[in-house]
Amino acid sequence: MSTKKILVVDDSLIMRTIIKDIVASDPELEVVGFAENGKVGLQRVRELKPDAILLDLEMPEMSGLEMLKRLMLLSRAKVIVVSSVGQTGSPQAMEARRLGAVDVIAKPSGAMSLDLQDKKGHEIVQALRRALALAPGPGA
């Protein structure tokens, strides 16, 4: 069965790498592209038509929220926000949800969370599976 296509949008190269590793742990999910800001992200969405997007909020050129606004018109991809300002109930998290993000996950140790995989890796994968209507993976 074909894998689901994931686009990773985050302004930090380190985070993009870490997130890619997180997604790679699940055989049914595949990272097909990256973007370092919202503007590039929109281009990639047009090119790649991903099934889901992991989206940071604080980025130069075009923020995650601005990208979400356009995605709300343009793309069917399910958007999961992964951000240091994404604490449950925070203003940014709420705005992201209002603009159509299906889930918001907080980075555990700030914008650059080297411990993202340890602390939230599982949660991110589960959120993706849920959004993509896949059965919960192992250890859910």
């Binding site: 302004d11 930090s12 604080e58 980025m59 130069p60 050129e61 240091s84 300002v85 140790s109 700030g110 914008a111 650059m112």
Partner: peptide, 11 residues
């Protein structure tokens, strides 16, 4: 912890 600071189009 750490936070993103954007200046001059760079983060």
């Amino acid at each position: 912890t750490n936070r993103t600071v954007i200046t001059d189009g760079e983060s």
